Simulated scan of single mutants.
Amino acid sequence: MMKTAERTLPSDNVLGYAELTNDLLFHRIPHSKRRYYVERPLAIGREHALEFKARYGTDVGAICRSRGISVNLNERQGTIGQIRFRAQIELSAKERAITLYKSSMEELRQCAGVLLPGRSFTLKEITDIHLAHELFHDLEFTELGYTNKRLDDISSLSLGPLRIRASVTKTSEIAAHAFSRYLLDLPCLPNLLDYAYMIHSGTLTAAEFWRQTEVWSGELENS
């Protein structure tokens, strides 16, 4: 656990659980399986990050180029309606491309200190975090198989005797966060920056965030 001037940063498990709660089927996950859907993808992401770092180093841009992935830094904001994107990846047999939106990267760089006092990021570091995240999804596409498909399915719908099962898709995001964290030696899972941005933009207060981390921690401990 890393301590800031005021707080102890949330653990990987807690931030992984925070991501899990965003899954559309979170309410269908049995309480006894929640820890599994956090710890397994964290382990998968960390394992492949350490293996990748030992083989290729940490120059994420160079790694992407060597794998035939084109990287584009777009000066515009990535938006569809009210939804803003920081990065997008296109994966197909014809093209593998990552697009990063510079204005969104700069916003994250400016607000990181909200939850990481004393830790500043350069624009390159922020873009590398997102490149590493998308690089993991490319690895899933080309070699590993998607993390959510490698883990147990859950019952998503019951219609009499018919039971429909589905995968927990956010586990792929949790693994990508862990991959980025351990490839780049970050102090915590990078989805912490999402909450720093929310606090910076006024959609969440710092007090609300820290209270919520206690809720997440308690739910995880009781699962």
Rank of each mutant, 00 (worst) to 15 (best):
K33D: 08
R34C: 04
R34W: 13
R35T: 05
Y37C: 04
E39L: 13
R40P: 01
P41V: 03
A43R: 13
A43L: 13
I44D: 00
G45Q: 06
G45F: 05
H48V: 07
H48R: 15
A49D: 04
A49Y: 01
E51Q: 12
E51D: 09
R55F: 01
Y56G: 00
A62K: 15
I63A: 13
R67V: 00
G68C: 03
I69H: 05
S70M: 09
N74L: 12
R76N: 09
G78P: 11
G78W: 03
I83E: 12
L91R: 14
K94F: 13
R96M: 14
L100G: 11
E106R: 14
E107T: 05
E107V: 00
L108V: 02
Q110R: 15
C111Y: 08
C111V: 03
G113A: 12
G118Q: 08
T122M: 15
I126F: 11
D128K: 05
I129R: 09
F136M: 07
E140Y: 11
L144K: 04
Y146Q: 10
T147K: 10
K149E: 14
R150M: 14
D153A: 09
I154S: 08
S156T: 12
L157A: 07
L157T: 08
S158E: 14
G160L: 06
P161L: 10
R163Y: 02
